[in-house]
Amino acid sequence: MSRPLLLTCLALLGLVAASILVGAASMSPVQLLSDPEGLKLLLLSRLPRTAAAMLSGASMAVAGVIMQLLVRNRFVEPGTTGTVEAAMLGLLAVTMLAPGVPILGKMGISAGAALIGMAGFLALIRRLPPEEPLMVPLVGIIYSGIIGAGTTFIAYQADLLQYLGTWMNGEFSGVLAGRYELLWLAGLVAGLAYLFADRFTIAGLGETASIGLGLNYVQTLWIGMITVSVVTAMVVVTVGAVPFVGLVVPNIVARIMGDNLRASLPVMAGMGAGLVLASDVLGRIIRFPYEIPAGTIFGAVGAAVFLWLLLGPKPRAR
């Protein structure tokens, strides 16, 4: 096991312990395990909440790095390029037109919309000059702004604005057993992406290099896009997207470990899980006994880290 992976796992263990112990009802570890009320709290709320934070963090980090390799630009993630907004638009549409559809169906429609949104973004940036890398995130922000504005307008007309807030800003206080299990599927899809780690890394070298190595580039592109869309939709539907996870985590890990996904993907997943869980735990502590959504905390810190990545010192040799 590589050292970064080991450190990530150790940090995760500590965070899981903290997440299980911290909450509005204070319980000692002994109470949680022996007291029937404690056990109920543990199984129905604390463990599902911990799992939800980790699964969404891990899968969004994976979705982020896949998107970065496909787009060949470090400064993109589903949340800044319209994929999250498209997923919300799809979800809004089924909520309005067919509210009775079961959650898996809603997720499917949302994922389909996310896929279309992402394909639109890829088609848009094909025209951009490769020597202007900052154009790509800028176009992404404008593109996502347009889809987002349209979605907001429709939601406003339909009096569904309060939903948008929950889809956009990841929050885990409402997570209970039975209401988050879709996230395991998101985790599974992100895990399956590991089977394609080499392909995504090669795709990151560009289309010509990929063809030269005999990679089926178009197929790889589709596999990546489907992974990103499905993960995004599942997270949006269950807990809401946590902004900047897909951007910040892969950038930090790539600085240290580079872009060879076979080595770095597990670390990215672990760090995504850890940082979102840490935001959630912090959100529970800062204004105890009230809670601040994890998405708000990560969004604030993540935006600062993003700026630093854009403007800060360039990576050095180790």
Partner: peptide, 25 residues
């Protein structure tokens, strides 16, 4: 294309924006 990749290799003129890969990788 995967069969051709075992017969023919090409190094293009503009290798392009490099990923952050190690030389060995």
């Amino acid at each position: 294309t995967d069969l051709l990749a075992k017969r023919l290799a090409i190094v293009t003129q503009r290798v392009g924006v490099a990923s952050r890969l190690r030389v060995g990788d």
